[in-house]
């Protein structure tokens, strides 16, 4: 028997019923091999030492220290809810921040209420009324100026004709003046009527603009 075989026998001794001491070949080898003999003695002593060990009871200890320290599954909402809140906040910030820049400088506001439909309508109406009033006043001034200028021209022409003409011609001239005055009044009525039409047309234009503005606002 070789040393390697003898040592394999020693190892097999514990796990099987094999008893090397009952094997003549093993005993013969040990008689001649001091190294294996010492190993075998150490082997037997260590086995006996292992068998002599009496298990100790485990003292009380904190099993929680080694007890599921971090493997608890986290509920989905602990991660998704904060994420959703952040997204909503971001959306609000982006959509509700108003940056206003005018002649006095610029300003930034958050969460300002938009103008309501009634407010928009009132503002448009007010602007249109102001424009119509201004337009009316301008027209009246223009008409008055035209009337005054025409009347002065007529009077100047009548005065010049009266100075040059005598007798029947003067009577004729007076008749012509009366006719001209009548014509002038007719003309003035016609002009007033045309001006009224222009004002009405502008009023319609303003109403159309109001409708367009309302549509844009919506």
């Amino acid at each position: 028997m070789l040393c390697e075989e003898a040592r394999a026998c020693m190892s097999a001794r514990r796990k099987s019923s094999f008893d090397p001491e009952g094997s003549p070949q093993f005993e013969t080898h040990l008689e001649h091999c001091q190294d294996c003999r010492e190993l075998y003695q150490g082997h037997v002593l260590t086995e006996q030492m292992a068998m002599a060990w009496t298990d100790e009871a485990v003292p009380q200890w904190d099993r929680l220290a080694a007890h599921m320290p971090a493997r608890q599954s986290t509920p989905w909402f602990t991660t998704l809810l904060p994420l959703a809140a952040c997204l909503i906040m971001g959306f609000l910030v982006v959509s509700r921040v108003e940056l206003v820049s005018d002649g006095t400088g610029w300003s930034m506001s958050f969460g300002k209420e938009p103008m309501g439909e009634a407010q928009v309508q009132a503002a448009i109406t007010q602007a249109l009324e102001a424009a119509a009033l201004q337009n009316n006043q301008d027209m009246k001034l223009l008409l008055a100026d035209y009337q005054l200028h025409t009347q002065q021209n007529m009077e100047n022409m009548v005065a010049a004709a009266s100075h040059q003409m005598r007798g029947e011609r003067k009577d004729d001239l007076t008749g012509m003046v009366a006719a001209w005055s009548e014509t002038r009044e007719g003309d003035m009525l016609w002009v007033q009527e045309r001006m009224q039409n222009i004002v009405l047309r502008q009023d319609r234009t303003h109403k159309n603009l109001s409708k367009i503005a309302k549509y844009v606002q919506q």
Partner: peptide, 11 residues
């Protein structure tokens, strides 16, 4: 180790 154990008086 076995050789050392063989020489130990504690064993």
């Amino acid at each position: 180790a076995l050789k050392k154990i063989k020489a130990m008086p504690e064993v």
